[in-house]
């Protein structure tokens, strides 16, 4: 429990990174860790690139990390993984949702969505590609792709012994609980 662990979640405004970090943080708190979590609100949420950081350990000071310090980078979108890769510890892991969202310059035809990002990521760091969007779509609600990714993160980071069901229950509306729990389990299997 000595070394502070750093999780960086990145995505596009509206993808549910903040809710995921919230579930992650409350569960880690209940598991007895000191936890700090940092998120960004306001202008950046309007379809921009968003990040949240979760740090936990025996004693955490800074709520944010610098470059090269994330133990794991969970990217909700393909290009965002590359945008934030310099925050990853070179020995760290990447979990990337196999899902692309075009940004404004691409939509307006000023740029093209870059190809071959997943291959580049794999060359740079240990990368696991997860079909979270597809899984969520199959479950019947694309919004739960964030919880699919949470499942994948829990598996990769070996955090299975924490009571995730309780944390999810406390953070989602009762009518969406079942699908979120299914999404979580599916994520662990991907």
């Amino acid at each position: 429990m000595s070394k502070v662990k750093n999780i960086l979640l990145v995505g596009v405004g509206g993808q549910g990174t903040i809710l995921t970090s919230k579930i992650l943080s409350t569960a880690l708190l209940d598991a007895g860790y000191d936890v700090k979590m940092s998120e960004v609100h306001g202008m950046a949420q309007r379809g921009g690139s968003v990040t949240t950081q979760v740090r936990y350990g025996e004693k955490v000071y800074s709520p944010i990390i610098g470059k090269g310090q994330a133990d794991i980078l969970v990217s909700f979108e393909v290009m965002e993984a590359m945008r934030w890769i310099d925050y990853l510890n070179p020995d760290g892991d990447i979990i990337v949702n196999n899902y692309s969202i075009n940004s404004a310059p691409i939509l307006s035809g000023k740029a093209e969505y870059p190809s071959g990002i997943l291959e580049e990521l794999s060359k740079k760091a240990k990368t696991k590609v997860v079909d979270a969007f597809k899984t969520a779509e199959e479950l019947g609600n694309i919004k739960v792709q964030n919880i699919v990714l949470l499942g994948a993160l829990v598996k990769k980071f070996k955090l299975d012994d924490i009571n995730w069901e309780e944390a999810i229950k406390n953070n989602v509306k009762p009518k969406f609980l079942e699908i979120n729990l299914k999404a979580f389990e599916s994520g662990k299997e991907l």
Binding site: G48, G68, R83, D86, Y87, P90, P105, I106, E120
Partner: peptide, 20 residues
């Protein structure tokens, strides 16, 4: 300076906020 991975710049397009 901490060790870090370099971004492959041509693989990233800016993502400014937009009207929803």
């Amino acid at each position: 300076k901490t060790d870090r991975i370099e971004i492959v710049k041509e693989k990233v397009v800016s993502r400014p906020p937009t009207l929803c």
